[in-house]
Design a binder for these strands. Structure first.
Length: 441
RNA sequence: GUGGGCGUAGCUCAGUUGGUUAGAGCGCCAGGUUGUGGCCCUGGAGGUCGGGGGUUCAAGUCCCCUCGCUCACCCCA
């Protein structure tokens, strides 16, 4: 048996890896001009950073976190989610507020893998600290929405809710607990006792018993304090004014303890698998304090790149291919020319590759063809003696022509310009792959 | 952590009631084309049939265990 990547992880090979990077590049192109700066933080933290932020009761901390003592006995954990790390970095460096950051980070959780779920996945995210204004909630949600639009996604829905805050949630929790207590017998086996620890979980349960009970239960969105209700209203108005469609979901319960007020989730309708959440986020006005800082509001989201790409496949959009090579050098006259010419082309900024090992011309031409290059540059004994190169178009009709070595760069540029007149490589073109679909090897 | 499905060449898969040297297509390499790719033709390389144990004269085919993949639950992106 050949070696394998660990369970739940995978290798992304070219050209899929290019598409992944391109998706990230588009996110960056959207978010940086909106005032978000990239933050790179470590893939592991002291365990308490996540334990305090996410909550000990949560499965992500309780049974999914990769946690270990290092050689010095420090308890460390591989990052299972993005927000806590960013907030820890904020507290360490204290950049001026408001602080808006974006990230692309691998996240690790020891889950049982299934369709669109991995032990290592990657999230694009933004976090904004120091602003309580509901308009920032709107901006954050809008960013995710706008990003989907740049990819061409259309089949998705946005649900929003509110978790209240310290002023209204505790009183509400007393009410629901009492309600569930009264209807305890009607809850499913799992939640008959568990509702005491975390009553909000019951709203998330998919079993019909629980759903029947929760549909009649008091809803947090109906019991918000004046401030939270006003905040929630303003978020709804803001989204409406930007034309972002949403629905209010009183059952929307985000799993992490740090959420307050606004919560939201985007789900795709184009993912066949059970896991169709593309992006989840919300406001976390208490998190900075939980990690030992001063009261500081925050909002953000995390978006799973793998799932976004599955959604793109489902909708048949964002079908991008890496740019093809410009030239491939075929040398059957010893190899000196191949070395010199590829160097010359690359110095001039032309994408080029060549064959090695002194293979036959037929073999080299095959490689040239597979490389997707616009032209093959052929050097045989005759060309070598004459100081010329045969420029042979590969993707379009046209005859091959001898060109003096000094003019090779210009000749390739001309050939490439002629060949790419009908749509440059790397563009999104639904239904049809760009030239060079096979990619480089 | 729980449950279902599946593991035969690099890839996608055949393989009859267990029966001789395990096949195909694609891909790869070489030749047909003594200097030219994509099409076609010919040939070649490549397999501990996931691994271990058992039943049997005989196991890719049956039984057990194990590992892995996959889908779903829990939870999450």
């Amino acid at each position: 048996m050949p070696p394998r990547a660990p369970t739940g992880t995978r290798d992304l090979l070219w050209p899929e890896s290019w598409r992944f990077e391109e998706a990230a590049a588009r996110f960056r192109a959207l978010v940086e001009p909106a005032g978000y700066g990239l933050i790179q933080s470590p893939v592991f933290e002291y365990s308490w950073v996540f334990r305090r932020g996410i909550g000990e009761e949560n499965d992500v901390v309780g049974k999914e976190m990769y946690e270990f003592a290092d050689r010095d006995g420090q308890m460390l954990a591989l990052r299972p989610e993005g927000t806590a790390s960013v907030v820890r970095a904020y507290l360490q460096h204290r950049p001026g507020l408001p602080w808006k950051a974006w990230y692309l980070a691998p996240l690790l959780r020891h889950e049982r893998p299934q369709a669109a779920r991995y032990r290592q996945h990657h999230q694009l995210g933004i976090e904004a600290l120091g602003v309580a204004d509901a308009d920032l909630d709107v901006e954050v949600i809008w960013v995710a929405h706008a990003y989907f639009a740049t990819l061409g996604l259309a089949d998705y829905s946005l649900r929003i809710g509110s978790m209240g805050d310290a002023a209204c949630r505790p009183a509400y929790l007393v009410d629901v607990r009492a309600f569930f207590e009264a209807h305890r017998g009607e809850l499913c086996d799992e939640h008959r006792e568990r509702f005491r620890a975390n009553p909000m979980r019951v709203f998330d349960c998919k079993r019909p018993e629980c759903r029947a009970v929760t549909s009649a239960a008091p809803k947090l969105v109906d019991h918000l304090c004046v401030e939270c209700a006003a905040h929630f209203a303003r978020v709804r108005e803001g989204l409406g004014s930007l034309g972002v469609a949403f629905e209010i979901d009183p059952r929307l319960v985000r799993g992490f303890d740090y959420y307050t007020r606004t919560t939201f989730e985007f789900a795709s309708g184009a993912i066949e698998a059970a896991q169709n959440a593309l992006c989840g986020g919300g406001r976390y006005d208490g998190l900075v304090e939980m990690l030992g800082g001063p009261p500081t509001p925050g909002v953000g989201f995390g978006m799973g790149i793998e799932r976004v790409l599955v959604a793109c496949d489902g909708e048949g959009v964002f079908r991008v291919d890496p740019p093809a090579l410009d030239a491939f050098v075929v040398d059957v006259a010893g190899g000196d020319a191949a070395r010199a010419i590829t160097a010359r082309l690359r110095k001039a900024g032309l994408a080029s590759d060549r064959a090695f090992d002194g293979r036959s011309m037929k073999a080299q031409m095959k490689l040239a063809d597979r490389s997707g290059a616009a032209v093959a540059l052929i050097v045989g004994p005759a060309e070598s003696a004459a100081g010329t190169v045969l420029v042979r178009p590969l993707r379009s009709g046209g005859d091959q022509e001898p060109v003096p070595i000094a003019a090779v760069v210009d000749a390739v540029r001309d050939a490439v310009a002629g060949a790419s007149g009908r749509g440059a490589p790397g563009q999104s073109s639904p239904g049809e792959g760009a030239p060079g679909r096979e990619g480089r090897r």
